[in-house]
Computed example of a mutant assay.
Amino acid sequence: MADRLDYGEGTDAQQFVFLLPEYLKDTSKKMKTGLMFVKLVNPCSGEGALYLFSMCLQQLFEIKLFKEKHHSWFINQSVQSGGLLYFATPIDPLFLLLHYLIKADKEGKFQPLDQVVVDDMFPNCILLLKLPELEKLLQHVTEEKEIDKKKYYKYSREKTLKWLGKKVNQTMAALKTSNINVGARVQSNAFFSSHQISSDKEEDYICYAHGLISDYIPKELNDDLSKYLKLPEPSASLPKPPSKVAAQRQKRNK
Rank of each mutant, 00 (worst) to 15 (best):
M36D: 13
K136F: 07
K150R: 09
S235Q: 08
D200V: 03
H70A: 14
N253A: 07
W163T: 00
G46Q: 02
L113Q: 11
I180S: 00
S188K: 05
F18P: 04
F87V: 00
S199Q: 12
L225T: 01
N179Y: 07
E62W: 13
K230P: 07
F110S: 06
T33N: 10
I91M: 12
K29G: 02
G83M: 03
G183F: 01
D6V: 13
Y155F: 14
E158S: 10
L19P: 02
I197M: 01
L19F: 11
P232Q: 07
K219I: 14
F122L: 01
P218D: 15
D12T: 12
S198Q: 10
S198T: 15
N42D: 06
V186M: 01
K150P: 09
F61A: 15
D204W: 07
D119F: 04
Q59A: 13
S54P: 14
V79T: 13
S156I: 06
A190C: 12
M1C: 02
N124I: 14
S199E: 14
Q248E: 09
H71R: 13
A247L: 15
K159G: 03
K240S: 15
A49M: 03
A88F: 01
S194T: 15
K39F: 10
L98P: 12
E144S: 14
T171G: 02
P132C: 11
K109H: 11
V17L: 09
S178R: 08
W163N: 00
K69P: 00
I91W: 09
M55K: 15
E133L: 13
S72I: 01
F192G: 03
I75L: 09
P232L: 09
L101A: 09
F95S: 00
